[in-house]
Design a protein around this nucleic acid. Structure first.
Lengths: 98, 98
DNA sequence: GAGGTATATTAAAATATCTTTATATTATTA
DNA sequence: TAATAATATAAAGATATTTTAATATACCTC
């Protein structure tokens, strides 16, 4: 991207990922998932986001390959499936001195 | 953010910055500026973006403190003013193996 | 299988963002 | 100062995203 930006395509790809992360609720969800897998209900309570919204964000991120889910009874556990996302979250932590 | 996310505020702040970066044209502009300061016209040609759009993106990023400008005759040179943005761009480069 | 809990889906309404077109400003040069 | 080049601004139109509210599905327990 910086060395060889002959590629506008690459900017499009990166921007697409950033678009998903550029939302306080989704970011908040991912930060929670960074530490451990969690159910929809736990995220709902932990992030203070409505159930449909949590579910919608998770569905979106699952389709994008960022998170994955596994069902256990009538709970569904979500976790971060893409290691690149973890690295990005760590960068944000450093850059923003959180 | 990952250690102590008691702060939803922090997610909002990070998301606000990411929102600006989450656009292929703006990302493309910043990648060009990463190497050296450039005029609006150079960015227009180099990124293949219309003049008003380049100018609008730059104005937005200037107001957000990401870039700064200096006039020289009737050219205006833009450069990245926020070191954090450089670090983020470097992270993207690493993560996405550009 | 009825009732309850957890999660997912849908669709409409509200907002925000992007793009385009036209025009304005600033500075230079002749 | 008229003409031109470079940049900025504004406003309308087009799209996309977010939010909310209602409803559906899946699974468990009794």
């Amino acid at each position: 991207m910086l060395g060889k930006i002959t590629d506008y395509r690459m900017c499009e790809q990166v921007a697409a990922v950033l678009k998903t992360l550029a939302h306080a609720q989704r970011l908040s969800i991912l930060c929670k998932l960074y530490r451990k897998e969690m159910t929809v209900g736990e995220l709902e309570a932990g992030c203070g986001i409505s159930q449909p919204q949590v579910s919608q964000h998770l569905t979106r991120m699952r389709l994008e390959g960022i998170v994955e889910s596994k069902r256990d009874g009538n709970h569904v556990y979500y976790s971060i499936s893409d290691p690149q996302i973890r690295v990005l979250l760590e960068s944000f932590e450093k850059v923003f001195k959180v």
